[in-house]
């Protein structure tokens, strides 16, 4: 959004203010209460996995996620996608939303790129793999085995 901070309700009374000196409490200039302001979060790079992309660089993503917000907040956005189509706008369903190419720096084709989480319309959450991930992540050695197996699988 290009603005330096945003007011947020709540927070005062929690321990956030102990660990986030960048969260400031101010007097609400338009009211009687106190309110927290938080600094803008501006990621250098965002990586977004899309359902579809076209050669103009428009991408089609799931409407139920936060990808458009991420694209708008970040300095650079790179996308991976399940497949390339002629024009993503012609593929729009009520489940989707387009992030226009103006936000997108580059796109690669990477079918299965969201696994073991899901890419709606393509594949669902892989519960067994996620459970294995959680189990493997407890130790360094089992985790590196998991990564090797996953990359080879």
């Amino acid at each position: 959004m290009g603005i330096p901070f945003m007011p947020v309700r709540g927070i005062i009374g929690t321990d956030y203010l102990q660990i986030r000196p960048d969260f400031k409490v101010i007097n609400n200039p338009y009211g009687e209460d106190k309110i927290v302001v938080v600094p803008a979060n501006v990621p250098e790079v965002a990586l977004i996995h899309a359902k579809k992309a076209d050669r103009q660089g428009n991408i089609l993503v799931d409407r139920f996620e936060n990808d458009p917000l991420l694209a708008r907040a970040s300095k650079k956005v790179f996308a991976s996608c399940e497949e390339v189509v002629e024009n993503v706008y012609r593929e729009l369903t009520p489940e989707d939303i387009v992030i226009p190419s103006i936000y997108i720096r580059g796109v690669i084709v990477a079918p299965g790129g969201a696994a073991p989480t899901r890419c709606p319309g393509y594949y669902e959450l892989d519960d067994a793999t996620l459970q294995a991930y959680v189990k493997a992540s407890r130790e360094e050695s089992t985790f590196s085995n998991y990564v090797q197996d996953f990359l080879q699988g």
Partner: peptide
């Protein structure tokens, strides 16, 4: 660690 506060000071809107 207090992530969600059961109570809060009176000067914050709740």
């Amino acid at each position: 660690f207090v992530t969600g506060a059961g109570q809060s000071p009176p000067e914050v809107r709740r």
